[in-house]
Amino acid sequence: MSLNTISYLIHEIKTPLTGIIGITEVALEEEDASKNKSYLMDILNCAQRISEIVGGLRSYSRITKKEEQSLVDIHKVLEDSLEMVRLGIKVTSVEVIKRFQPVEKIEANMGEIQQVFTNLITNAFQAMNGKEGRLILSTRSLKDSIEIKVSDNGIGIPQKHLNKIFDPFFTTKNPCEGMGLGLNIVYRIITKYMGTIDAESKEGIGTTFTIKFPTKGDGNGKESIGRR
């Protein structure tokens, strides 16, 4: 982690910490007890932000560790990830289309692959928030790799942001909604397995993420497909 990143994180933690201290000082002097609930809510929100930052860092650091690997069934992980996101977000107006073709299993850590799809599907649901959404999950087998696409018809990503979306701490969301590590974690996991990820997007039309994982015999990372 670079010094710039650490410096950024310190700022991200200091800001809600300032809120906690400042509001607590006010609350300690407050004579009107009916206002305390509002102060406590502020303190809780700030503490949750710090907790999210720490949680994000934990996920970020886990990727660098070598963990148990097995043959991972991509279709099962896609189904599980979708289910997990649906439970968390409770979106009902999204139509999910699955176009699964037979693909090889890949050797990887199941939890990490699930995190890739959970993050991508969560982003897709958030991008379709408030409209009749359509999520397409598709897989196919290529010569030396398997390809997975996650497409949505959400708000899309502005062209000027497309080359930054995998950078750590890049976010266009409200600071309370995320700290910009989700897609960086996706990118780091995929590249750990010599895979590639590519994003295509049009504002108002939607976004498609295309992931490729090398299958047996490949994986030397020489072909450049999308972002590495």
Partner: peptide, 13 residues
């Protein structure tokens, strides 16, 4: 840009 920081400063002021 932080609402909570504006809030406690506002209260004191």
């Amino acid at each position: 840009d932080e609402e909570v920081i504006r809030k406690f400063l506002r209260i004191h002021l």
